[in-house]
Write a protein that binds this DNA or RNA. Structure first.
Lengths: 337, 337
DNA sequence: TTGTACGCGTTATCAA
DNA sequence: TTGATAACGCGTACAA
């Protein structure tokens, strides 16, 4: 059976509290006993039972993760799941567990915050969320350490990709290749990153004195392949006015777009160049391999972990901080050489 | 602050134990008080604090998940993550939490079993694992309720796809389309499902009196796109002896294969038909859209959840059980009409 | 039918 | 420097 701290204490002729202090590195203990205990603990493989520990101490060594309001998006989401993966690797190496927050506990519906209090999580990571969700708002407004890799809100620390840079990279690339007529395919503007990118597109085009038409900025209703496909067909129709290159704001959308373009008789990249966004695995597996703006999910997850751990350990006042992680353009086959 | 069971008791002029009995539906309580308490509990949103509850009771309402020995495979794995997602949805609706088992707790390296005992998980799901891993063997040999959606071992309950059926479907399809020369691209035989499929292929071809050459069964060293690509090039080389159709044992491998074939100057499906395996999202997004053997991840996850919950609630003796979940062939564009 | 008292394994506080 | 004791919040025999 499992050893308890009492067993260890008895076998060492010490009191449980002494063991506890040593294991947790708290209080003053003589070097001799410390060493003796540490040695024994190591040999016997004693580990404090987590529930008891959590009950008695304040820390839970657990981080709550809000992965998606709309639980439609599963783990397999190629972008967010990579961020989570990276985050997880890092916090685990620091001894923290991850637990996905659901608004349901047994038979009770709980708000995220209630759920977190109940589980006594130490901090909260919002991998993706909706800024209008009261549950999210409540969490961010609470005194819980929070970090987000998606949304931006007052009093929230966000680690996100540099969306403006991505668009500038895209435009710069187009110009360098001599592709003058630039179109855009964006997802819904309710998503911050899409919004930023569209804004930046307008600004940058203007700043560079490049002509563009508002009609060249297309919006999809959703995030799916089919949404991109629809736009592809649409663009394909205006035979007289085909863009040289289209900047698409997600790889999945880009795949759909390309197929739509192809089904309209256009060849990629000979007739139209296409740039995606995200650089998910399939971007390089697609035929033709997709030129895309790569987001550094590894770095985002890592920095989110560091930021959250930091604010857990030295509770600072909550302020809005936004850390921008650089993106880069990966040239493949969907753009003209 | 959070309400405790004592608060509730005091406010209702009852004792904590009475509340506990009612909430947990144990012991005999008069209908009146029961109703009164239930009503109050609902209104006030009281939920037992999970750590305390776990400490004092035997159940933890938590299921440990072994997702991967080699932590190389992330959440975004298109196949296993869908199974996990489905499993999660189901057990959550039954009030269970999921926690990913890592062999590390704080600074201590633990075996999976030690970890589970420490966290007092109620049961274990092996989404994917390695039958030679001592950690896995120990867990399966223990008295913990275990279910796997991947590996097959003595005394383990496994919910897996009907691999034999998948191959039969593939061969049948080929014959129906008049595609005589059938090749196979398999992953490493150390993986059970690949092994079964290869075996079935041999048996079925023999049973149907179809000719095949052992050289037509190709093996990759890994699971990646590049592994498939390499085989594609290889097949493409033997100009005189191109198969009519190739059964590939994963979609990712199939994508690589197709590209390899195309880079050898072969057209899909005009020169060669290709069938994948899994039916991940991208199978239908690929160009050409991939004909493939679809595994029912939703069903696998669901049945795994039911099986595990069942064996948690009525501890039966551990025996080997293997539940086969049907697959189906989805015809798309990589096979001749 | 309800309440009392104790145990679950730890940590924190305070005394020795 | 170490140890005794209470407290964490809940479940559960057992007593009332």
């Amino acid at each position: 059976m499992k050893k308890t701290i009492i067993d260890v204490a008895r076998e060492l002729n010490l009191s449980p509290s002494t063991i506890s202090k040593i294991v947790n590195n708290t209080g003053r203990i003589s070097p001799q006993t410390r060493e003796r205990v540490l040695k024994y603990v190591k040999e016997s493989g004693y580990v404090a039972m987590s529930n008891a520990r959590k009950l008695s101490s304040k820390k839970s060594w657990t981080i709550g993760v809000i992965y998606s309001d709309i639980s439609l998006v599963g783990f397999e989401h190629p972008f967010f799941s990579r961020i989570l993966q990276s985050f997880k690797n890092h916090v685990e190496s620091m001894g923290y567990d991850i637990v996905l927050i659901v608004s349901k506990l047994g038979n009770n519906e709980l708000t995220y915050l209630e759920w977190c209090r109940n589980k006594k999580v130490d901090g909260i990571l919002i991998v993706m969320g909706n800024i209008n969700n009261p549950n999210i708002i409540e969490v961010v407004a609470s005194d819980y350490p929070c970090v987000s890799t998606d949304i931006v809100m007052p009093n929230l620390h966000s680690i996100i990709s540099d969306d403006a840079q991505g668009i500038k990279l895209g435009i710069e690339f187009a110009i360098k290749k001599g592709l003058k007529r630039i179109s855009v395919v964006s997802g819904p503007l309710t998503v911050r990153s899409f919004n930023t990118r569209v804004q930046t597109f307008r600004e940058e085009m203007t700043r560079r004195n490049l002509k563009y038409n508002e009609k060249d900025i297309h919006f999809t209703v959703g995030f799916a392949y089919e949404d991109g496909y629809r736009i592809g067909l649409e663009i394909g129709k205006k035979k007289d006015n085909i863009p040289d290159i289209v900047l698409t704001f997600s790889d999945v959308l880009a795949f759909g777009l390309i197929r739509g373009l192809e089904d309209s008789g256009l060849r990629i990249p000979d007739d139209v160049s296409v740039i995606g966004y995200d650089d998910i695995d399939f971007a390089r597996h697609y035929t033709p391999a997709l030129t895309t703006i790569a987001q550094d999910t590894e770095e985002i997850g890592l920095r989110a972990a560091k930021a959250l751990l930091l604010s857990i350990n030295e509770k600072q006042e909550k302020t809005q901080k936004i850390a921008l992680v650089p993106v880069r353009l990966v040239e493949r086959e969907t753009t003209k050489k």
